[in-house]
Design a protein around this nucleic acid. Structure first.
Length: 204
DNA sequence: TCATTAATCGAAG
DNA sequence: CTTCGATTAATGA
């Protein structure tokens, strides 16, 4: 899912400031809720999810990132702890840069600093949209809200050919519903010809 | 092909 | 809507 357009700092620039490569296997935790934010992370290859669990152990996915995106950066500007976990969804390679070095990089590169603002704004926008969607009691509207967001972000949005690259379980965890509910709700959307389903692939 | 993971379904609460 | 149980399809080693 390419939910959020975000930071993508040139790898060589990151290395020149002391960044290092890190590899994680599928399912490994990159950082967890309560940890101090010490690094700027940028994905080289693979997917990660940010999540947390409620008191009943139900998982809520906050975001799924892939490509050359960064994550966990908002906490770098605060002396706060992470409020969610970052977990590898696939085997993943990423670059991490210590906080102090990252700050130095930003000071020396105002343009990147500005991009950082855009990135953070984008995250806020996503959160606002999702908060609105989640406040709906209708599972159908919640689901549609998520789909609309994903589609709007996906460039070349036009017709109904956008492939949602999420498992039903992930969708469920993003909108706080159960898999079965998501499946059944997707059926309704298909019946209403709002989406199409081909070989379990969701096309919107 | 075997094993694991995801998607489905039906019934009950 | 969620939970449970059971089945079937898809994926990867």
């Amino acid at each position: 899912m390419k939910t959020i357009s975000c930071m993508n700092i040139d790898a060589d620039l990151l290395y020149s400031y002391g960044a290092e490569d890190r590899n994680y296997k599928k399912g490994e935790v990159i950082y967890r809720e309560g940890d101090q934010a010490l690094y700027y992370y940028q994905i080289i290859k693979g997917k990660i999810k940010q999540n947390n669990y409620n008191d009943e152990g139900k998982e809520f996915i906050q975001n799924i990132l892939e490509g050359q995106q960064s994550f966990g950066d908002s906490m770098l500007f605060l002396e706060k702890f992470y409020v969610m976990n970052a977990i590898a969804l696939t085997d993943i390679a990423l670059i991490r840069l210590p906080k102090a070095n990252f700050m130095e990089l930003l000071e020396n590169n105002p343009r990147i600093s500005m991009e950082m603002n855009t990135c953070l704004s984008q995250r806020l926008y996503f959160k606002a949209i999702m908060l609105q969607n989640m406040s709906s009691s209708s599972p159908l509207l919640r689901l549609k809200g998520l789909l609309d967001y994903l589609k709007s972000y996906h460039k070349g949005d036009g017709d109904h050919c956008f492939h949602i690259e999420l498992t039903r379980q992930q969708i469920a965890n993003l909108i706080g519903l159960r898999v079965e509910t998501v499946i059944r709700t997707l059926k309704k959307l298909e019946k209403q010809e709002i989406i199409r389903i081909e070989n379990r692939k969701i096309l919107y």
